[in-house]
Nucleic acid binder design. Structure first.
Lengths: 189, 189
DNA sequence: GAGCATCTGTCTCCATCGAGACACATCGCC
DNA sequence: GGCGATGTGTCTCGATGGAGACAGATGCTC
């Protein structure tokens, strides 16, 4: 746990716990998960669990953050092509790939904690592209909340529209929001 | 391997290998699977593989036989209700549950070996219900082949009809076959 | 046919994991 | 309030599995 060993066994233990976590969140919601059931489902001993994580919050935090890292990386990717739009389509593609995780954590059985964490992460990403981030903290917060809501809606309704469409619609609204705040090329400019 | 330990670790190793096997059969076909790729996918060491199984044939044999055992048990179940038909519907329900396994093993990327093994198993089950099994060995073989083909068709076409319908249609044809052989209440009578 | 890559099946050694017990907390129920 | 069941987090000890090396087989390419 402290040293986070990267041997096959340790990685496997973490993977099994991750998968079990997502399954159980889907089935019963995060609150009703116990370490006992988690380890039983994952076919891992409780001792191994505590070797890898402090408690179930630590586990879910790690899992969620890993996913968010990949997500932010996908959006922030500094390719030469001038296609901000493509990046946000990539964003929703990532969400689609990890839909079980995001759906479980952001959905009814999840916990407000995750939505808040995701909002904060996106907020930082958005603010990072502002000329003077300290000047306006409201706008990034609103944009971030919008994106989280877009994801939630998209997943709860079983992705009724394509990645491209949901991305375009969300960008359009956020562009209006940013224009109102007096910001020119707002996202990933 | 010889003693087949039933500790959590040993059971987990077998489960991981089973799952990896099915995945890889679906992806590349049984022939092209190597123990290396198998253990890599399963996140298990080669040493652990050889502790649990002799080779990949041993593994697939075990996995397949486990499933067939459950299957035969489902059909042979000695309930009081006079519903032979229900049992064969149960048969197809089982097949539906294990569709990834059966589909993988019986499909194009599988190996004739499995279909043959399955036919033989069903053949024994069918013959077991004959008054004098030694008298006619052709009829059970034909009936068994029919059921295997019904399963293959059903899975390859993504289960286009319900369990009940495929069961009824298959039973109807086999009833004709059995009547022709002069056998009265043929299946599970 | 030589050379190279990959796979197999087996081995040893040591890290990690499972079993199970521990005290303590929490909860629902009578 | 007391009680039983269940959960938590930590610990020890023996079992199991990973790392990695091995010879030998197979197969592909030049």
């Amino acid at each position: 746990m402290t040293a986070r060993p990267d041997g096959l066994r340790a990685r496997r233990t973490r993977k099994l716990l991750r998968d079990a976590l997502i399954e159980l969140i889907e089935e019963r919601g995060f609150d009703r998960i116990t370490v006992n059931r988690l380890t039983e489902r994952a076919m891992v001993s409780r001792a191994a669990f505590y070797r890898a994580y402090r408690d179930k919050y630590h586990l879910v935090e790690q899992v969620f953050e890993e996913a968010l890292d990949v997500l932010v990386a996908a959006v922030a990717e500094d390719d030469c092509v001038d296609t901000r739009v493509e990046r946000w389509i990539g964003f929703f593609e990532h969400v689609g790939e990890y839909r079980r995780l995001y759906g479980a954590l952001l959905g009814d059985r999840g916990s407000p904690w995750f939505a808040a964490k995701m909002r904060a992460t996106l907020e930082r990403t958005v603010a990072g592209h502002f000329p003077d981030p300290a000047a306006d903290t409201l706008t990034p917060a609103l944009v971030a909340a919008m994106f989280v809501q877009a994801i939630t809606w998209w997943l709860e309704n079983d992705r009724p529209v394509s990645e491209r469409e949901i991305a375009l619609r969300t960008i359009r609204v956020s562009a209006a929001l940013l224009a109102d705040a007096g910001i020119g090329r707002p996202i990933n400019g």
